[in-house]
């Protein structure tokens, strides 16, 4: 079972935060097929959050084919997101570490590295979009 948290200053709507947290847990293998998501009542009780928000998040995850609701029982994971890419993480991490070392050698500080990454990330995304 996972637990949700809310960051109300992020500008990301609460229902999307719940969706993101489930997707991240699926990607990292924290949630696997057959696992149950917290019931709406549990989430409402622990976060003092609007039940419609939780329902909306679960409906969206269901539409994406990641979970299925069993009426009267709960919502269960039907598909995981981890399998295909997890193996590639390690070599990619090594490449990134090498790149970071190069950036530091060239004199970039943390802030410049972050800015460079963010702007490149955006440019590449826009090109491929």
């Amino acid at each position: 079972m996972i637990e949700f948290s809310l960051d109300t200053r992020s500008g990301v709507s609460p229902y999307l935060q719940v969706v993101h947290q489930v997707r991240r847990a699926l990607r990292l293998g924290l949630l696997v097929e057959g696992d149950q998501l917290p019931t709406v009542k549990d989430v409402v009780a622990s976060l003092a959050i609007n039940p419609n928000t939780v329902l909306k998040a679960y409906r969206e995850l269901e539409r994406d084919g990641l979970v299925a609701a069993r009426p009267g029982v709960g919502t269960f994971v039907t598909r995981t997101l981890a399998d295909s890419t997890l193996a590639a993480h390690e070599p990619l991490r090594r490449d990134l570490a090498r790149w970071l070392a190069k950036a530091r050698l060239a004199g970039l500080d943390e802030e410049s590295i972050e800015a460079l990454f963010a702007s490149t990330f955006r440019d590449v995304n826009e090109e491929s979009a």
């Binding site: 809310l6 109300t8 609460p14 709406v40 009542k41 409402v44 009780a45 976060l47 003092a48 959050i49 609007n50 039940p51 419609n52 928000t53």
Partner: peptide, 25 residues
């Protein structure tokens, strides 16, 4: 919020502190 989850009820509440309302509305 638990009452909202259990019953069919509409709620209208006011506040001058927005952060109170952000997660419930």
């Amino acid at each position: 919020m638990e009452a909202v989850a259990e019953e069919e009820i509409s709620v209208l509440l006011s506040s001058h502190v927005v952060s109170d309302l952000e997660r419930v509305c």
